[in-house]
Design a protein around this nucleic acid. Sequence first.
DNA 1: GGAAATTAATTTATATTATGAAATATTAAT
DNA 2: ATTAATATTTCATAATATAAATTAATTTCC
Lengths: 404, 404
Amino acid sequence: MPIPVRDLMRVINRSKILETIRTGGMISRIDLARTTGLSRALITGLTANLIEEGLIIEKQSGQYKGGRRPMLLGLNPEGAYVVGVNLSMSEISVVIVNFEGTVVASTTHPLPPAQHSVAEITDCVVAAVQACIWEANFAREQISAVGIGIPGLVNPHSGNIRFLPNYGWENVNLKELVEKRLNHPCYVDNSSNTLALAEQWFGAGKGVDNFLVVSIENGVGLGAVINGRIYRGEEGVGGEFGHITIDPDGPACRCGKKGCVEAFVGKIAIMRDARQAALEGRWHSPNPDGFTYTDVVRAAGDGSEALRQLFARAGHILGIGISHLIALFNPKKIVITGQGVQAGALIFTDMHAALDRHVSAKFGHRKVEIVVREWTEQDWARGAGAMVLQELYKSPVGQVATHH
Amino acid sequence: MPIPVRDLMRVINRSKILETIRTGGMISRIDLARTTGLSRALITGLTANLIEEGLIIEKQSGQYKGGRRPMLLGLNPEGAYVVGVNLSMSEISVVIVNFEGTVVASTTHPLPPAQHSVAEITDCVVAAVQACIWEANFAREQISAVGIGIPGLVNPHSGNIRFLPNYGWENVNLKELVEKRLNHPCYVDNSSNTLALAEQWFGAGKGVDNFLVVSIENGVGLGAVINGRIYRGEEGVGGEFGHITIDPDGPACRCGKKGCVEAFVGKIAIMRDARQAALEGRWHSPNPDGFTYTDVVRAAGDGSEALRQLFARAGHILGIGISHLIALFNPKKIVITGQGVQAGALIFTDMHAALDRHVSAKFGHRKVEIVVREWTEQDWARGAGAMVLQELYKSPVGQVATHH
DNA sequence: GGAAATTAATTTATATTATGAAATATTAAT
DNA sequence: ATTAATATTTCATAATATAAATTAATTTCC
């Protein structure tokens, strides 16, 4: 149902106000008028609506500047609660996020390795969400909507999952399945995008129009915010940073090609080569069969030369790849995150060396800020929550709730 | 001067109407209402304004569908005329473009090799524009504005040229210089962007939201249309496709790095290696010193193995580079153009081979349409005209004229 | 040839939204 | 208390969009 053209202006201006408060923090009505360019009269009216709806609140008086003290408006943390879910290979993370983006409750459930059918996963998601809401003592009606991030290709409009390799899914409409069971509106998107959204809303991307989030997990993902919007490409298959070919003669990648970024940098790649090193006796693993990524990072840090070289090569390749991102996107910032950043200097020393070599000084590209963000399990799920918040900010809360 | 918020809706709706007519061709008022979602009353009013301003005209009656015949509205070709200018290393092209984007007059002036000072180039631009208007029997007032495309880094908002290697310029405000002399509003942008704009308005990009234009000239440029808008990056230095490193051990590039796309594919690169081949006796050039790019293409076509290999390598590198563009941007189309496409199959056979190898079938990226567009001198200048038309479409014509 | 039917376009009355100017509220200093 | 300064609201007005009703233009059918 498209917004009637007549009401468009109001929706735009509401968003403008919320956006200004969200990115800039508490602000008086008069300053809102100044920064948004809207008339003071309109600000009075629209903020009154927003207060009535509970999305913003009068927080406290501001500094005295010689006259009536300004009343500062801020987001109402309790303005809405949303659920964010992240589906990974091995677990489901669920968080409840308030209107300010603060996580107020969270749970994580392991996924049994074998149970990845559509019905089973749907059951797990529904159960995990309900459990989280229940344990946090929330009422069903307090939750505005549910967002789900998945490591696969989605059409976020229809909710149809085109391709989800971890579970072997193709063309599954998780959105509809979950909506039917939970009776809440539901949004599904790729988790690289939700992570970028989290960064845009709560992290380093606040107020930045062009930035990238590179996530190093099993594979390597990219979430791109361009002109303030998540970029998805023509068919939702943009940002496949993990699958650009750096070395045509490099190792085989899951995607069927050779020498992709992720075939060097992803956790799967590191584990593959660590296993090989152990097999060839170049590294003596304490527990030869069952080591984890964290084990490999620790062993490399403890001095295993074979493993150090693995990470060094990963860093080198990552640096080349990121130099391409910088040349093509000219972002203001690049955030690197995911479990892979555990490797720290092991990987980033060589990454920066490669960047120094492959990023041109001529175009001012050296100024791009590269931020390594410590990774938490919750961040992904929180991003899925951010996706829902974005919808809430766009339209009055009630509208979303009755939208489906 | 920002548009007052109150008038925003009107501007948006005007643009919506013009956009619908431009991309879809002639249309009745009733169908305009249907496709734009605006009320019929509003369509009546806004189209009346547009007709009064001369931007659109009633063209002819449409098909009978059982009742009063619809009156079809179309763009008025004479609604406005704009001048487009392109500055290259060796010449200035000027065109006059009508409101439909048709070139109605054009001239080209060679630039003396030595005269590239700011004052000299400004003089040349002014003289060339005036000559073109004069020769085409236009009155000064008939021209709404002038657009200039340059092969360098510009801030299109201020008109400041940050960097223009061909002339050795840094921080030159060509916009202001030309505006002062011609007394017309002037817009300056990178020529890759103007070319993309031309494609978006008149060519393969009509109605396509995400597409790329790769131009092979002295260097290799990229114009990116993302979500329907030209993407410029955070500081106007995005789309530096020519300067992503494909082979870290490759030949030196103008940008100071090694093995960039343009160090293999650009005309300068081909000429450099052809000269070397001639020097080493691997190719016997008919005129050893003064051959041109076209000569090299012809000689390769006529069977010189050394030169064939040059183009084959260029094609291979180009294919790898474009595979990166596809993975990252997932565009609907990629248009390849510029003088470099003269080489035809010499370059594109290997490009497609590389694409087959480096573009993943998994993500549906194979579907990206790659269009090779024959190159004409005028296309660049026409793109600069398109930039101006875009401004006209955005705001009433009169507004633009008094804008500075 | 005129009435009916059908689609296109305009007019009119009305609702909504934004704005500028004026009025009111609040506060600290005098 | 008065004044001065700044913040916020109120109110009359202007602009814009819409729905419903009206008018316009055609062909078809009797």
